[in-house]
Design a protein around this nucleic acid. Structure first.
Lengths: 189, 189
DNA sequence: CTGATTTATTGATCCGGATCAAACATTGCT
DNA sequence: AGCAATGTTTGATCCGGATCAATAAATCAG
């Protein structure tokens, strides 16, 4: 059960052996059903999730009540609403399982506590921050520079899993366009 | 000359006394004229800038050749194209002085070298990453959820300096709208 | 399995902001 | 100061994608 997680942490930090085991003990398993809400807007940010199987969606809500997806996370990746996780403030984004998912999670306080007690864990955190920053900046750039059709083509090229695996509704939501617009783009690519 | 920088680092890291001094010695002064290009797209990312006076603009270029501003940085803040700075890859964004500016800069290799040699500097880097991430995510959210008019109002409310200090052309560019559109928004707010 | 709800497609219309164009104001240069 | 270059405003038109509406297809619960 900790195999995938072990591989991930090993790939992105110098943690090995006892120190790695020490970190792993803080991760607890969690099975969730499709559509389960793992984090609600307004509540404090509590957990960092690692996905063994399934898919999580992080989204925020516009003033008019509509949802927009900021990111999807599939198996073998981490997910948390980092903005609030960092500061400990209330969540601006919700997290939902869009498939039945097998997760491992670490509590926020444990996560930050380990930064002071386990040498090397800070390098893992640094990796997470750097990766999240680069990914997010890329997404910002795409939104600013590309049309809906171009964003769809790029997604299909760089992350086809999203298009193939998830319902149109969610794909459209991720691209920040309506289902109708996505349907037309797919019809005449 | 190092007063503002000292204050900034002290505010965002535990560095003090000799260790702080050690870090400061790596910062070199640089005076640039208005419109000077400090970093060109395609070149490797080389420097992290601290602004004593003036204003820098970080922008990328759309496929059609047009520029879009990702951020402005005024006095007492850092600026670098973090995406490339992190990875050491070539720059995807350019950096330009939009006012005559007095800067202090640190070379990228020095910056990362200090992470291993000066205890506490890693915490400063962590702060930079966290801050950059939160800021950028906020900007992504604003682009996704707000109209041009709403983005302008928000900018005026949260960062009036940008609107008051910089020419319309750059403000429009930052909002990712045309000068004409901004002019109309200002006329009928 | 079947009816009910949710999701996907297709068409008609609308709207925010882009584009093109022209007049006007400001800034910079020597 | 005086001219050129750059920035700003206002108007007319256009276009991508939203909205509204209706139907068809897929998914789900009992």
């Amino acid at each position: 059960m900790y195999e995938q997680l072990t591989k991930y942490i090993t790939a992105h930090s110098p943690l090995r052996d006892e120190r790695l085991q020490q970190v792993l003990t803080y991760f607890k398993p969690l099975q969730v059903k499709k559509n389960a809400l793992l984090a609600r807007i307004g509540e404090p940010s509590r957990r960092m999730f690692f996905i063994n199987t399934g898919c999580l969606r992080v989204y925020f809500i516009k003033p008019d009540g509509r949802e927009v997806t900021r990111r999807f996370a599939f198996e073998n990746s981490f997910s948390s609403s980092l903005t609030s996780f960092i500061s400990g403030t209330t969540l601006k984004e919700a997290t939902q399982a869009v498939e039945p998912s097998a997760l491992l999670y670490m509590d926020r306080l444990d996560f930050y506590g380990l930064l002071d007690t386990v040498p090397g864990w800070d390098l893992f955190y640094r990796y997470c921050l750097e990766y999240a920053y680069v990914t997010n900046t890329r997404r910002l750039e795409d939104f600013i520079t590309l049309s809906a059709r171009e964003r769809y083509r790029l997604l299909l090229e760089e992350n086809p899993e999203v298009v193939l695996r998830l319902p149109n509704k969610l794909v459209a939501n991720y691209l920040n366009i309506t289902q109708e617009a996505l349907s037309r783009i797919k019809a005449a690519p």
